[in-house]
Structure formats: C-alpha cells, structure tokens
Design a binder for these strands. Structure first.
Lengths: 204, 204
DNA sequence: TATAATATACCGACCAGTTGGTATGTGGTC
DNA sequence: GACCACATACCAACTGGTCGGTATATTATA
C-alpha cells in the first residue's frame, strides 16, 4: 500500500512496462487494470498518464518493447553462428524447447496473448502485434532462405515455413495453457524438426 | 434500448450463450461486459443471473457449448465416412481450410481465445478449455490411431500428432489475427498435410 | 558561475461512467 | 396458487482518465 521507497526518477516508464509484461502475461490485457498496474510498478496514476496517453498506448509500447527484447535475445544466441543454416534452425528449436521449461506464464507471448483480445478492438495494438510476429518471422526466415538456397524445395517458400515456426510457437502456448502442461508444445517442436529433417534430407 | 419484442420464454439461456460466443470471439472474455452481453442477447440482468451464478459460470457454459457444437459439426461431416483414415485426416484439413474463408472472428476459437486470458485466473474456465481441446484432439486422434495401425511409424504417437493438429489450428488463428489475414494459417495446414504425406508415404 | 527561466517527471485527489452482482417484484404456466 | 422464468431497480466497488500542483533536472543568460 504505502510506498516506503519511491521509484527513482526516470525509471517509471520502464517499471510500468515491466509490470505490464508480467500482469498481461498472467491475466491478459483487458483484465489488467491501471490501478493494479501502477501498484505493481510502484508508481502513481499521474506517472502513468505522463508517459502514456491511454491504456491502449501502454499496450502498444508493451508489445513494441516485447518485440525488441525477444528479438535481441534470439539474435544474441550462440546458434546464430553455426555455419549450417539448417543447424541454426535446429538450434532455434532447441532454444524454444528450453524456454518451455519455465512456468507457463513465463513462456507465454505478450503479442500473441494481446492480439487474441484486441485484433478487432484496437488497430494500433493489432499492428504492434503484427510487427512483433513479423520480427520473429524475419529471424527464422533468414536462416530458411539460406537453407533453401543450398537445398531448394519446389513449392516451398521460406516465408511459409517461417510462418509455420510461428504457428507452432503460438499454438503450443495455447495448448500448454489449456492443459496446464508444456508437453504438447514440446511435441510440436519435435514434429517440426522431423518435418525439416525430411524436407532437407537430414536424418537424425 | 427498449425491448420491443421480448425473447420468448425459455430461450434466454441459449440466447445469452449465442451472444457471448459472438462477443467473446470479437473482444475476448474480460472485455465483454454483462451489460453488453445482456443487451446483445435481448435479455435483462435478472435473466442472466437466473441462469448463471457468475460471469465465470457463463464462461464455462460458453466453452462447454462450444465443445459440443464444434464436436457435432466435425463428427457430422462427410469425410468421416471415407474408408481410408489418412484420407479422413486430409478431409479434416480441407474442412479447416474452408473454414478459413470466413471473417477472422468467425473462425476464431472460443476455447483458445478464452484460455489465453483465463488460464491462471479461472480454474473452471481453464478446465473447460482443456475439455474442449481434448474433444477436438480425440476426433483427430481416432483417425490417427487407425492410420498408424495400418502404417506404423516408430517413435510417433497418435496423441502427439493429434496435438500437432490442434497446435496448427490455434497457432494459425493467432497469426491470422495478428496479420489480419488467414493465409499463414492456410499455409500451416498445407505444411501439415505435406508432413503427413511424407510420414505415411502418400505423395500428392 | 550564479541565477533565472523553462521543461521534464511525477504525485495524488478527484470524477463520471461502468462493472459484476443483488434483492425484490411480476406475469405466465402447470 | 405455487413455481418458474424472467424483469426492474438498485448498489458498492472499480474503471480509465483528468487536473492542479510540486520536485527535480536542463538550459539560457548575465
């Protein structure tokens, strides 16, 4: 209740986004109230509306921050320096499987969760979610383009395969939430890897 | 506003669930208020709380109704009478692709949308969503069990493949909502079909 | 370099409208 | 006339958002 130590000047915005990430992942966007959010961030309503014009604006900032953070995380990972693009794809999948070891709320996707609610009610949030998906897509696609250049597959585009990765990630999250267990998501990545091995003729 | 023609006696509950299905698909569960819901159903708050103990109870009833409706729809489809189980799987995928021709809100999944928001905040709604996913899973799995009996694939279970179908459906919806376009979902089904053709040795 | 002027960051009380939920009344049906 | 299926009226708590104010930082000026 009573704030004993104040949030240092200049940190309010970052703290609000951090708190929003946690709350939205747990309860969704609509169910996250600004009062709860500000309390969790240790900040007042005044601070909120100084940094964000509306709850919707916070949502956009949250998703954009999410895009940046996750993008940087994947870009920084060691598998990116593997010489073989197909191995990089397997490295990506392996990382994804590792992430599934965390609690469900911690591997839930901010963009995916939010766009389920807001795709019709908020133009700007849907657009932000599209940017987020697109960013993840680009990462995988770059490896796929290389892989397909070395091993062309008639009728299969890097774009559509990259989408399949995203579909597996997002669908896996939904099933994990429903079952309270990450194993269906885990299995989906296994199947995706097996599909890639069949396509690129890479037996395990 | 003013109710000109009243909802016939005995229909309130069904109308509420129907209206909830539409609103929840468009705006999510939390963002759907009881006032809006009752107005859309042409019914008063008194009717609502006569049939449902709480908003959460309506959510559970909505998801269970969804499970029943979709289950009946898939069970009734002609592809189920095809002699070959693998052909039935292709028939299922073809039907899924047809459904993608509708507006996004109309192929959005009530269970998937709701569980994204409520998996941590409502035990009963998460359980209802699990029942829904499980029901869809069972349908596909029954064909997969037959297919695997005729054409065994070491290391691949009907259960995990059935999950993959659900993952493709749910993930496809998320991507479609984000992009405002069903094509990534469509492509995911194409890849899934190609994967099955490779596994079961069924070239197109 | 001291100081005035201005911009930034944040506070917290307040507001009107909405929220899920309740208590009680009423008309139709058996 | 009892019961069921709703309608009506109402409520406290909460909702996103506003607004006047203050403390701190930045820049301009002399």
């Amino acid at each position: 209740m009573n704030q004993t130590t104040r949030v240092p000047r200049g940190e309010a915005r970052a703290r609000l986004i951090e708190a929003a990430r946690i709350l939205v992942r747990r309860k969704g966007f609509a169910a996250t109230s600004l009062d709860d959010l500000c309390a969790a961030a240790g900040v007042t309503k005044g601070a909120f509306f100084h940094h964000f014009a509306s709850k919707e604006a916070l949502g956009v900032a949250l998703i954009d921050d999410w895009t940046e953070t996750t993008g940087a995380m994947f870009a920084a990972h060691p598998y990116n320096s593997l010489p073989d693009p197909v191995d990089r794809l397997f490295g990506y999948l392996e990382l994804r499987r590792q992430i599934l070891g965390q609690p469900i709320a911690d591997f839930s996707c901010v963009a995916g969760t939010t766009v389920q609610e807001a795709f019709e009610t908020s133009v700007s949030m849907r657009a932000a979610a599209e940017r987020s998906i697109l960013s993840g897509n680009d990462h995988v696609r770059s490896h796929l383009v290389e892989a397909l250049a070395a091993h062309p597959l008639p009728g299969i585009t890097a774009e559509s395969l990259a989408h399949l990765f995203q579909v597996a990630v997002q669908g896996g999250i939904v099933l994990a939430k429903a079952k309270g267990d990450a194993s269906p998501a885990h299995e989906a990545f296994d199947h995706l890897e097996r599909y890639l091995r069949l396509l690129f003729n890479r037996p395990a």
